[in-house]
Design a protein around this nucleic acid. Structure first.
Lengths: 159, 159
DNA sequence: ATAATTTAGGATAAAAGAGTCTTTAATATT
DNA sequence: AATATTAAAGACTCTTTTATCCTAAATTAT
């Protein structure tokens, strides 16, 4: 299993890219452009970003010059909000052994250690806002798209 | 997404139960009995435990009085081995944003924080051996099977 | 008005995960 | 030797996730 679904991962990558390209308040970034830059299907990404629009994280606009933008300043949007909108918060709330009703009253054998761990995992997504992540991406030239082995070899090491 | 697949979770629950029922060296526990006690499909559990047998964690035996047992003492088998045999170690090794080739040379925006976190998550499964978990289960009466709301209400609180 | 662009939304398909069922092989017991 | 029991293995089904494709609706520009 993976921590996050592919949809969620794509939603996060797209959101970070949008924050990197932070526009004028009234401009929109087209989903097609985002998809091209991230090297993934525009149709599929459209579906995913629709979820973010429906949850109120994005505002969309149809027609020429249309696209999507954040409904709030990027620095007020935490990664956990993207995760919540797409995958939900189950990862941070459920029993590691998938036992319904697992809790202090009737704990599974992993309950205690996993409970503590979940809190830390959740913090990882709660502490980062899109603006800061985007700034790091710009400063350090971090990447958002999958890179082939050949491309990797040509990259400079950041040590 | 969930941390572990259902197959993996069932495999872990079954393994813990086997450790609780720790038998004579030469006795086997039938998969049908394990499945009944965990309230899940015997056929499905058979498939899952087959994987553990193929990886050498279990020894199986057909025919009457047949079943499965651990190939080594339960106290030498760590939870991570069950996870590895069923889900693989991808969870502890892959990029949180699913980027192939993500690493220090070409990190994704979550690389640093997720890298540190992965180590801790892995430790959670590396530090627990089946014997200790089973002992806790016995001492505290912890549970391994899903319980209905009605049953839960009848349970004593452990505070 | 017309045409072009872009998101919305539904239909469909492909792939993976979860689960069931049937047959086969091994083996212990009678 | 015959029977009953149990895991192994493969076929098959169902569901969810991932992905593609097509049409509709909105909106801008000509």
């Amino acid at each position: 299993m993976s921590l996050l679904s592919k949809s969620c991962v794509y939603g996060i990558r797209a959101s970070i890219l949008m924050a990197v390209r932070e526009q004028d308040k009234n401009k929109y970034l087209s989903i097609k452009d985002i998809a091209e830059e991230l090297n993934l299907s525009a149709h599929f990404l459209t579906k995913i970003l629709q979820q973010l629009t429906q949850k109120g994280l994005l505002v969309s606009h149809r027609g020429p010059k249309g696209g999507v933008r954040f409904s709030r300043p990027a620095k007020e949007i935490m990664l956990i909000e993207i995760v919540e909108a797409i995958d939900g918060l189950g990862l941070f709330e459920e029993c590691a052994l998938g036992l319904a009703g697992c809790g202090t009253a009737a704990p599974c054998p992993l309950h205690d250690s996993w409970s503590k761990h979940k809190v830390e995992l959740r913090k990882l997504f709660e502490k980062e806002n899109l603006s800061e992540v985007a700034q790091n991406v710009k400063d350090a030239g971090l990447r958002l798209r999958t890179v082939s082995q050949a491309e990797l070899l040509n990259m400079k090491s950041y040590k």
